[in-house]
């Protein structure tokens, strides 16, 4: 299992580094979306719940691009069959894809968050607020990665692939949106970060756990045939 995950992950990251597709597109798209928000909201800077909303929507829409692409190379170049022929647990593919998508999301956030702070965010982020933001985003990334892998595996087998990804993923990610927005709102207030949003971290952790188990149980049915 570990050997297979390692091989798959190495292949995944090498493909992305060799012919970068997902990460640059996602990063560029997220910065463009920030500019879009500036004009659409007609604000030079945002704070509090508005800032949380802007960050949340931008991140999620960028994630949709990555989800749409996640299984395309495997489908078009037959890599999926190549994997299925190997005597390894199919869960390895789920783990490798989710880890890869999570890594892509972290990479995008490394561009998105600084861009957001410089371009739109009113109050300055201190170190404590920054650490909390990172913690929340990591839990969010885990949930998006798992749900994204599940949705990507479903959508890649359909004719309407790119249409179905947001239609399936966005409602499924609504609890993540709620938790992300609620948890980051206090971080973006001028008054500074309050106490750690334990309730929302708990919700995110529960979400990650539930969908992690679901994906583990269901993924095998998505890769056969």
């Amino acid at each position: 299992m570990r050997r297979a995950v390692g091989a798959l992950l190495r292949k995944e990251l090498r493909l992305e580094l060799r012919a970068p597709q997902s990460v640059p597109a996602m990063a560029l798209f997220s910065v463009t979306t920030l500019v879009l928000f500036h004009f659409a909201l007609q604000r030079g800077e945002v704070d509090g719940d508005l800032a949380a909303g802007v960050l949340c929507v931008t991140l999620l829409f960028a994630a949709m691009l990555g989800v749409s692409r996640l299984f395309v190379a495997d489908r078009e170049e037959g890599g999926l069959d190549g994997f299925l022929l190997a005597p390894v647990d199919r869960t390895a593919l789920l783990v490798a894809k989710a880890v890869a998508l999570g890594a892509f999301l972290v990479a995008v956030e490394c561009v998105l968050v600084p861009a957001f702070v410089f371009l739109l965010l009113g109050p300055a982020l201190d170190a404590a607020a920054f650490a909390r933001l990172a913690l929340v985003l990591l839990l969010v990334d885990a949930g998006v990665a798992v749900v994204g892998t599940l949705v990507g595996a479903i959508a890649v087998q359909t004719r309407a692939r790119d249409l179905l990804v947001p239609l399936l993923a966005l409602p499924l990610l609504m609890p993540v949106v709620i938790a992300l927005a609620k948890a980051t709102t206090p971080l973006f207030l001028a008054a500074g970060a309050g106490s750690l949003p334990v309730r929302w971290l708990g919700i995110l952790a529960l979400y990650d756990l539930v969908f992690g188990l679901l994906a583990y149980g269901l993924f095998d049915f998505l890769v056969e045939d």
Partner: peptide
């Protein structure tokens, strides 16, 4: 394949319902 994928969807969505209610309620 249609039947299998639809079933995966139905199970995922079924599990999503209570989780979603919890999150919306707390919000």
């Amino acid at each position: 394949k249609q039947a299998r994928y639809a079933s995966v969807f139905a199970i995922t969505a079924g599990a999503f319902v209570p989780l979603n209610f919890l999150a919306v309620r707390l919000a």
